[in-house]
């Protein structure tokens, strides 16, 4: 039982648990947390396999940046959005399960029958350039320079694409203060609207404020959460109709 073996089995079990959690969680937020958990475990594995740079990147980029992005989007589309786990496509779940198992079984049997009996380890390769990062740098800015440059173009394009996709064109001229004032007066509610979460059980923006008589005030919610009802157990709430 060397350290490597211990680390492998611990992280392997954890990461599989995380992956399974991702699939079976009803709430997207939970799924995201399970993914982050799996990724950290994978980062540990990378460290143990001599990929210090990759492990760090895994934590910083994946667990940090990418998962943060996921959470941002989750916040936008509704943090409580979750699937009902009832399958709508006929036979999808059954066939999907069979195929997934078959695939996994084939993959595993292929790997075990093909077989690598021993590993060389990257320690020598790391030391040749004075460390893992130097070794990687040597390759990235050497042999894989062209691919590296191309990925930069890809990233730029992706950033532009995301901007174009998410951009909202303004079709009407911006309202003037006078207009806003008039609208607000005519709407019959000249004072500011109540803030969400006031006196409610949660203080998040998607929880309507409670009026003095204890009833929730829909007016307190931002427009995007208008359809969400307040209740103690919000797991049944769906943004989608």
């Amino acid at each position: 039982m060397t350290g490597e073996v211990v680390i492998f089995w611990v992280t392997a079990i954890f990461s599989v648990i995380g992956a399974v959690g991702l699939v079976i969680s009803r709430k997207a937020v939970h799924s995201a947390l399970w993914v982050a958990f799996t990724m950290i475990n994978l980062a540990v594995l990378y460290f143990s396999l001599g990929g210090a740079f990759l492990g760090t990147t895994q934590i910083v980029v994946y667990t940090g940046a990418v998962m943060m992005l996921f959470l941002f989007v989750l916040m936008i589309v509704g943090v409580d959005s979750s699937d009902s786990l009832i399958e709508t496509i006929k036979g999808q779940r059954l066939v999907g399960t069979i195929l997934a198992f078959a695939f996994g079984a084939l993959l595993t049997s292929a790997i075990t029958t093909t077989g690598f009996s021993a590993a060389a380890g990257v320690a020598v390769a790391n030391d040749a350039n004075g460390g893992n990062i130097e070794g990687l740098a040597q390759l990235i800015f050497g042999r894989y320079l062209l691919a590296f440059e191309v990925t930069s173009a890809l990233l730029i394009t992706a950033a532009l694409g995301a901007m174009v996709l998410a951009h909202n064109e303004r079709w009407t001229p911006r309202k003037t203060q006078a207009q806003l004032q008039r609208e607000r007066t005519l709407a019959g509610h000249p004072t500011p609207l109540p803030s969400p979460g006031v006196l409610a059980l949660h203080n998040s923006v998607d929880t309507p404020a409670l009026l003095p008589d204890g009833s929730p005030s829909q007016e307190s919610l931002p427009r995007i959460f208008k359809s969400v009802e307040q209740s103690d157990d919000s797991t049944n709430n769906e943004v989608t109709s």
Partner: peptide, 11 residues
Amino acid sequence: SHITGTLDGQV
């Protein structure tokens, strides 16, 4: 990368 002992897999 670990098996072959090169860094190309990590790249």
